[in-house]
Design a protein around this nucleic acid. Sequence first.
DNA 1: TTTTGGCATTCTAAGAGGTAGAGTGCTAAT
DNA 2: ATTAGCACTCTACCTCTTAGAATGCCAAAA
Lengths: 347, 347
Amino acid sequence: MQPGPQIGEREREILTAIVETFIATGEPVGSRILARSNREGLSSASIRNVMADLSDSGLLEQPHTSAGRIPTTEAYRYYVEQLSGRTQISPSDESMIQDSLNGVSDVQEFMERTSHVLSLISKNVGVAVAVGGTKNALDHVYFSRLGDQKVLAVVVTKSGLVRDRVLRLDLPQHELDAAARFINENFRGWTMESMRAELARRIEGERNEYDRLMTSLEQLYRQGALAADGATQVVFVEGAANLVAGETDRKRLQELLQTLEEKQKIVDLLGAYLHTKQEAVRVVIGLDDAQPSMRNLVLIGAPARSGGDVMGSLAVIGPTRMDYQHTITAVSYIARLFDKVLNDSGE
Amino acid sequence: MQPGPQIGEREREILTAIVETFIATGEPVGSRILARSNREGLSSASIRNVMADLSDSGLLEQPHTSAGRIPTTEAYRYYVEQLSGRTQISPSDESMIQDSLNGVSDVQEFMERTSHVLSLISKNVGVAVAVGGTKNALDHVYFSRLGDQKVLAVVVTKSGLVRDRVLRLDLPQHELDAAARFINENFRGWTMESMRAELARRIEGERNEYDRLMTSLEQLYRQGALAADGATQVVFVEGAANLVAGETDRKRLQELLQTLEEKQKIVDLLGAYLHTKQEAVRVVIGLDDAQPSMRNLVLIGAPARSGGDVMGSLAVIGPTRMDYQHTITAVSYIARLFDKVLNDSGE
DNA sequence: TTTTGGCATTCTAAGAGGTAGAGTGCTAAT
DNA sequence: ATTAGCACTCTACCTCTTAGAATGCCAAAA
C-alpha cells in the first residue's frame, strides 16, 4: 500500500516540491523549474533521474511524453502524510471563523455557519452535517393539533437540534398532550435509539389491553413522529460554485453539482469517513469508493464532538489541487471550537 | 415599449418560427431552413426581407454578418405573449407532479418537493419559497428551556409552517409557559404582523409597571422569538446543476451558481416579481434588474395562494432558450394544486 | 558510484494559410 | 409584392509548419 522504502530524503523533498508547485500553478512541473527553485543546487538532470524513479513508483505521471510531471493520487496521500502536523491558524482565518460563529448556540446554526465559513476560507465546498441520529439524547417532544387530521410533532434533543414534521393523524389535543407527557416523563435523557426501542417494546407488550395512551403512542410512532433516522439529519452544503474553477470537463462538473444537491449522498459520504471515535482531521484523497462522480475529489473533514458524543461532522470538499495545510488547519480549528461553543453559555 | 404595429401576421409567424427553431437547435437560424419548413411556400429571399425588418425592430440579431439570426430578449417577450394561453399538461408531467406532492400536508414540504419536481420537469432550476411572513396567521407558539441560558422558541402558523430558533435567555420554564399561554390565548389567528405590533404596543404601554409576564415577553420579543421577517422564510433551490449545460462562459456560470446559493437574493427575486395579487403565471425575461448575474436568465413563476393569501411562490429559473410552453404549463398546474392540496385533509 | 552536461527525440500549442459552406443584402426580373 | 441570382462576407475547419518545453539516455566529470 505505502510507496515504501525506496523513498529517501531526496525523493521526498523533490516530490513535495513538485506537489506544491503543481498546486500553485496547475501546470505540469518540469525538471528545469525545480532545479532553479531547489535550495541544494541539484542539476535538472539529477532531478530527472529522481523523477523517473518517482514515476516508476506510481507517484508521478505525465500528460504526454514531452510534458512535465503531475502528482498522482498516491502522491497527494504521501504529501499530506508528511505535512507538519501542527500549524498555527492564520489570524485572518481565525477572526473570520470567530465572527461567523460568535453567539451561535445550537448545533444546527453552528453547522450552517460552519459550512459557509469553510467554503469561504478554503475557496471550495464547505459541508456540515448535524446528525440528529440515534445517539442523540432526547430533551423533550411536543405534539400539537394543527387542523383537521394534521398533527405537528416536534422533537428536541439535548444538543438543541430541533426536528419538526407534520403528520396525518386525527388525535385530539388532550391525547397528544398525554402522549407527550408520557414520553417526556419517561424518556428525557435517553438516546433516541433506546427510547424508540423501549417504546416499541412497550407498545408491543401492551397491544392487547385497551389503552388509549398506548394506542395514541402507537399511531404517533408509526407515523414517524419520533423518527431518528435519515430525515432527522440536517445538511448544509455551501460554495458548490467554487468547483466551476477546478473542473474543466463540463459533463463531470454537472454530475458533481448534481451529487452535491443530493443531501442524502452527502450524509452517507461524511458518515462513511467521519463517524469515527478519533478526534483528528481526516483527509481522504479520491472519493470514488463512496461517490463515483467524486472520483478525483478530496475530502478534508472532522467529526464534531461534544463531550465524547459525535454530533455531526464538518468538511471541505474540493479538487486534489487544493491548499491542504491551510484547509486542514481551518477544519481542525472549527472542530475543536465546536465543543467549546456549544458548552459555553455566556456571552 | 411594445414592438408595435409594424408586426403583421407574416412577421409574427416568421418570428415565432425563428424563436422555436432557435430554442430547439441552439444555433442561429438562417432563411433557408425557415423557407423549407414554412408551410406557406415563401422563398428564402422573402423571408430575408422580413428578417431584415425584424432586425431593424430590434427583435433579431446576428452573431456576425454571415450568420443566421438569433432572437433578442425583446423577441422572447413577444413570443411568450402570443403563446396560446391554454395548454393541457402532459400526462407524464401530471403523474410526476402528483407522485411528488402526494400526501404532502404542510407548506414547507410542499415547497421542497415543488422545487425538486420543477427542476426535473423543466430541466432547469426549480425554486420555491414559503413566506413565513407577516401575512401568515399564528397558530401557536411554544417556548422551552433547553439548558443553561438557552431557550427554544417554536412558532407555528395556521398553514403548518414551523419556525424554531434557539435564543440566549435565562428565563425559568414556568415563565416561558406563562408567556406562551398569554400569546396563544390572546393572539391565535392573528397575522404575525399585527400580533407583533400589538405585543410591542402593550409592552411599551406597561413598561413602567413591574410585571413579570411583560418582562419575559419583552425579552422574548427582543431576541426575535416571534420573528416574522426574513429569517422566517424558507427557500428551496434545486437543479442548479442544470445551468451548466446552458451557460458556456465559466465566469458567468460561477457567478450564477453563487447567486443561487444566496437564499436571501432568491427571496428578494421572487418577492419582487411574484408577490402579486394576480393568480397568473408570470414570465420575466431578463432578470438583470433584480440580479446582474442573472442578466440573461428567465423566470417563470407564480404565487402560491391559499384562500386569497399569498403563502409563498414557486418558479423555474433558466436560460432564455428554454421550453416556455412546457414550463409555464407545469408552473401553472402546481400553483393551482397548491390551494387544493393544503386544504385537502383526506388521503 | 553519483552527478552532470550534452544531445537527439518527442510532443504540444500556437500561428499561418487556404477552402468550403452558409448566410446575407441588393438588384433586376417576374 | 415576390423571387431568382449573384457578389460578398465571415466562420469553422483543415493542414502545415514551427518554436519550445521536456524527456531519456549516454558518456564524461567529480
